[in-house]
C-alpha cells in the first residue's frame, strides 16, 4: 500500500483520489464512457511516467487536468469530433432575463425548479456536452471542478482574459440549451441547428 508521509513526487497514491473528477470531466469532453475511461487511463499512465516532474506541494489535481486536457486536445486534432453548431451570441442571453421579459415571478424561481424539476434526467450534462469544446473545457474546469481562473489559464495554456470570455460565452450558451430543453418556446432571436 502507499506509504504515508513520504511527501515525495514518487508517492503516486496522491493522484489516485482524483479519478472520479477526471472521469466525469472526461465524460463531458468525450461524451462516451469507453472513450472517457481510455482518456483517464492515458492521463494516469503519463502522470506515472512523468511523476518525477511533478513538484510536491503544488496542486496535483491541476497537474492531472493539464495532462488530460492536453491528451484530449491531441486526440481531437487527430480525430475531430462533430460539434453541434452554436450561434455566436450577439446579444447577451440569460434564462433570468428571458423569464423576466415574460413577466414571470423570477425571484420566486430557482434554476433547479425551472430546468430540472420538469422530469428531465440528464439535461444539464447533455447541454454541457453540446457546447463547443473550448467553452466546454472552461465551464467544466470552473463550474464543476472549481478551479480558479488562473489555474484554468495555466491548465489550458491560455490567457486569463480568454478564460473569462470563454466562461461567459459558455455559460450563456449553456443557458440557451437548457432553455430549449426545458420545453419552453425558443427565445425568438435564437436560431438553432438540429434540435
Amino acid at each position: 500500500m502507499g506509504q504515508q508521509g513520504i511527501g515525495m513526487s514518487s508517492d503516486f497514491s496522491l493522484f489516485e483520489r482524483h479519478v472520479d473528477a477526471l472521469y466525469r470531466s472526461a465524460l463531458r469532453l468525450t461524451r462516451k464512457p469507453e472513450d472517457a475511461e481510455d482518456l483517464v487511463q492515458e492521463t494516469y499512465l503519463r502522470a506515472y511516467r512523468y511523476r518525477n516532474r511533478f513538484q510536491p506541494g503544488t496542486n496535483e489535481k491541476a497537474w492531472l487536468f493539464t495532462i488530460m486536457t492536453n491528451v484530449f486536445r491531441n486526440r481531437l486534432r487527430q480525430h475531430p469530433l462533430p460539434e453541434s453548431p452554436i450561434d455566436q451570441p450577439g446579444a447577451d442571453f440569460s434564462i433570468y432575463d428571458q423569464l423576466r421579459r415574460e413577466g414571470m415571478p423570477v425571484h420566486l424561481m430557482s434554476p433547479e425548479e425551472i430546468i430540472v424539476d420538469r422530469g428531465f434526467g440528464d439535461e444539464v450534462k447533455h447541454a454541457l456536452e453540446e457546447l463547443p469544446v473550448n467553452m466546454r473545457m472552461v465551464v467544466v474546469l470552473v463550474d464543476v471542478e472549481d478551479f480558479s481562473y488562473k489555474e484554468v489559464a495555466s491548465i489550458l495554456g491560455i490567457k486569463i482574459g480568454t478564460v473569462m470570455s470563454r466562461l461567459h460565452r459558455g455559460r450563456q450558451a449553456l443557458q440557451k440549451k437548457l432553455w430549449e430543453y426545458s420545453g419552453r418556446p425558443k427565445p425568438s432571436a435564437i436560431a438553432v441547428g438540429a434540435h
Partner: peptide, 10 residues
C-alpha cells in the same frame, strides 16, 4: 451545473 455533473463516478 455542479450538482448535476458530479454524479458520475469512475
Amino acid at each position: 451545473v455542479r450538482r448535476e455533473c458530479c454524479t458520475d463516478e469512475a
